Simulated assay, not measured.
Amino acid sequence: MRALRIGLILLVILGGLAFAADRVAVGMAEGEIASKVRSSQGLDSEPSVSIKGFPFLTQLVGKKLDRVDLEMDTYTVQVDDQTGTVDDLVIRLDDVKLENNYERAVAARASGGGVISYAEMARLTGDGDSTFGVSFGYAGEGQIEVRVTVMGRAVGPTMIGDLDVDGDLVSVSIDDIPSFSDIPVIGSIPGIEDQIRQRVDQDRQISGLPSGVELEGLKATEDGVTLSVAGTDVQLTGAASE
């Protein structure tokens, strides 16, 4: 009985050591991946990396990780010729193969997304004129609320816009822009309705997403416009194979 008890204690100790070794190894691997992703994607800082699945060492021996999650608090994209910011970008990578002595990692599938805030949308829509602008907000049911602003203050009627996406081109389309002729100050601006449509209702190209993923869709939420991205055979780290 004493021998059995000692044996069980040893098994528990060995199991604890194995678990600890596995967690240390996964932590080191996450740090290494974060560093390589920063380099390969040209990021300003390292993303947060989380390797899922247990045990990690078994996955490492098999040269295939079940799932790797990347998270970036902010990510820079290009919107036409302007620099835009995507907040809380999260990308899930599934079935990640490790190649070239673990120097290269390629995910079979990728999915995820981030948010462009309504304040950021307003900034990107502006043309440097601090007097006249456009603000955005959530109108419910996946639609955008659009308001004209004068000196940062919303004036006139609320307009409702729909989000459209075609490849890497996105737009907020407004069916009808009401008359602003009776609105003080703004109504005296020649062609104000055409100016509103020009600022809002036009295609804008989003580029500079992480290598291997493409824009799949847009959805208006209370926090902003959510971008959905996806890709296949996404190279996470390392140089392309010969």
Rank of each mutant, 00 (worst) to 15 (best):
E46T: 13
K52G: 08
I160T: 12
V146I: 08
G167F: 10
V49Q: 07
V24E: 09
D69T: 13
S50M: 10
D73Y: 06
R67C: 12
I13K: 07
I186S: 00
V61I: 14
I116F: 02
L163A: 07
K52Q: 12
A220W: 06
A110S: 13
D73E: 14
D166K: 15
D203A: 06
V68P: 04
T221Q: 11
G42I: 07
E216F: 04
S35M: 05
G238T: 11
S188Y: 05
V96D: 11
E145H: 01
E216R: 15
L209S: 06
L163H: 04
I144H: 04
K63V: 04
Q143W: 00
A122L: 01
I116C: 06
V165G: 01
E214A: 12
D95I: 04
N101S: 09
I6G: 03
S241C: 06
I91S: 09
Q82H: 08
A108L: 02
A108C: 01
S207T: 15
E99P: 06
R67Y: 04
G7R: 09
F136W: 04
V68G: 03
A107D: 03
I186F: 00
E141W: 05
F19R: 10
V79A: 10
M1W: 06
D69W: 07
V229K: 05
V229W: 09
S48G: 12
A122F: 04
K63H: 15
T221E: 14
V155Q: 05
L89T: 05
T237S: 12
V229A: 07
Y118I: 02
S50D: 13
S45N: 11
S171T: 08
D81M: 09
A119V: 05
A240L: 13
F132E: 00
G187S: 01
G187D: 00
T83W: 03
D129I: 02
G208W: 11
P210Y: 06
T125E: 08
E71V: 09
V12M: 12
S135I: 01
G112K: 05
R123D: 13
V115I: 15
L98V: 03
G113R: 04
L215K: 08
D44E: 09
Q82K: 15
Q198R: 04
R23T: 12
I9Q: 13
D80I: 09
S171D: 10
R199K: 12
K63P: 04
G152P: 06
V26M: 10
E216V: 08
R123V: 02
T58L: 13
R123N: 11
V170D: 04
I177A: 02
G137H: 00
T221G: 05
S135Y: 03
M72K: 05
R104C: 11
E141A: 13
E30T: 10
V115F: 09
G212Y: 12
G137K: 03
V229M: 08
K97V: 06
Q202W: 01
L89I: 10
L4Y: 12
S171I: 01
A21L: 15
G156S: 08
G126A: 14
R5H: 06
V79E: 07
G208C: 08
S111H: 11
A239V: 14
M28Y: 14
P178W: 05
N101M: 07
V77N: 14
V150E: 02
